[in-house]
Write a protein that binds this DNA or RNA. Sequence first.
DNA 1: CAGTGGTCTAGACCACAAC
DNA 2: TTGTGGTCTAGACCACTGA
Lengths: 251, 251
Amino acid sequence: MTRTASARLGLALDRTSPVPLYHQLARQLEAAIEGGALGPGSLLGNEIELAGRLGLSRPTVRQALRSLVDKGLLVRRRGVGTQVVHSRVGRPMELTGLYDDLPAAGESSATRVLGNEVGPAPAGAAAALGIAEGAPVHHVRRLRLAHGEPVAHLCTFVPADLLALGTDDLEETGLYRMMRSAGITLHSARQSVGARAATAEEAGLLGEPEGAALLTMRRTAYDDTGRAVEYGTHVYRASRHSFELQLLVRS
Amino acid sequence: MTRTASARLGLALDRTSPVPLYHQLARQLEAAIEGGALGPGSLLGNEIELAGRLGLSRPTVRQALRSLVDKGLLVRRRGVGTQVVHSRVGRPMELTGLYDDLPAAGESSATRVLGNEVGPAPAGAAAALGIAEGAPVHHVRRLRLAHGEPVAHLCTFVPADLLALGTDDLEETGLYRMMRSAGITLHSARQSVGARAATAEEAGLLGEPEGAALLTMRRTAYDDTGRAVEYGTHVYRASRHSFELQLLVRS
DNA sequence: CAGTGGTCTAGACCACAAC
DNA sequence: TTGTGGTCTAGACCACTGA
């Protein structure tokens, strides 16, 4: 009888830790999968046995496995078992664009604030944000650089009463981190991705020839109370940037 | 004492039905939200009471609520309760692009097959599909029409041994439905969205001026065993099409 | 047939938010 | 302090898969 792959893993749980048991288990399994200890197609062994071996109840184990299934790392089939997904989709790949405001991992990335003032909301922004036209909003224009070259032009509107937006903070910290610090927890966002030719002004800002193809994105972000907290219209150099996304089919 | 919003709903469960109780409850709550019976911000009443009123256990109710939270319809907060999300994101909005192959809801949509033959896989398609270069693949070229006008040009590769692809079926049924009928269950897809200027050939096919901005998408789709089942490079008229997506922030 | 995940129950204790 | 959701347990029966 061959041992199931997970039996070799030396999973260890810390019941004194404040981090939930199902989350500890999920993270360890995820690390084992990403690290190759659990190769594609590996069978995990049934839930009952896994629970017994770890000293957990079956629902707790199921909660851990479910979170990994939701991430696309595992597949479960009745009568078969739980196995690591076969595809070589190496990385989960972060939600596209939503974190574009954060400084990228490398140090080769930077943000330059071109403009940052409070003024009356134009009609489009007011409609997206669900506020009155002309109500006060921050209007921020930023240029995203990578390796010293411009990559994107971001034009963002934020209701003025939400938080203060210092220009220095915007360049160093990023808008979303500032919102988080201000007690705003992002919940969802709606994006629309399109394309069009560069205007003369955009061409100059981004270092592209006039008429070059640009990727456009409009985004409205909401916090956990459903309030719209950001409306942005962004333009990316198509020659330097594309949006990567991974979709999971909901059963 | 005001009754919670959900108390007015007349939820009814059928224990003889094969559809799970948590799913019945989730669908009824979803319908109530979409239909306006549960307006934005409505409080649902606590889980214990809801379970008691419906004759369910608390975990079952939680399973139903969790699925709606995952869909972005509900928000739960400790010490506060479960409420309908405030935003007016009226519709969940289907996973963008993955179903682009299916005939759209309206009858104003159609697909014309420009080419459909089996041949050796070119390098790019072979790499994406994880098969040997030169292995036999279906190569399908299609034109998507809406309201009688071209919208997109789809170039798709499918391993030849997966299923048969009749040209008539492709025009009437759509590729994904054919796969489903062949016992292939789609699991995930990886997409890359970009932009570029139209070549002369593309311009002619799509009815755009040469050099017009086009949206591009490359997609690799996988089935539930992790096998790559489709690789496609698609081009959309940016003037007629954009990708809409809703993102949920994972806590 | 035996083994798997899918569903469901009836409790328990805890952390956090609001008053 | 009170009420909420968050976590966890220890069982049970069912539906489906594969041999």
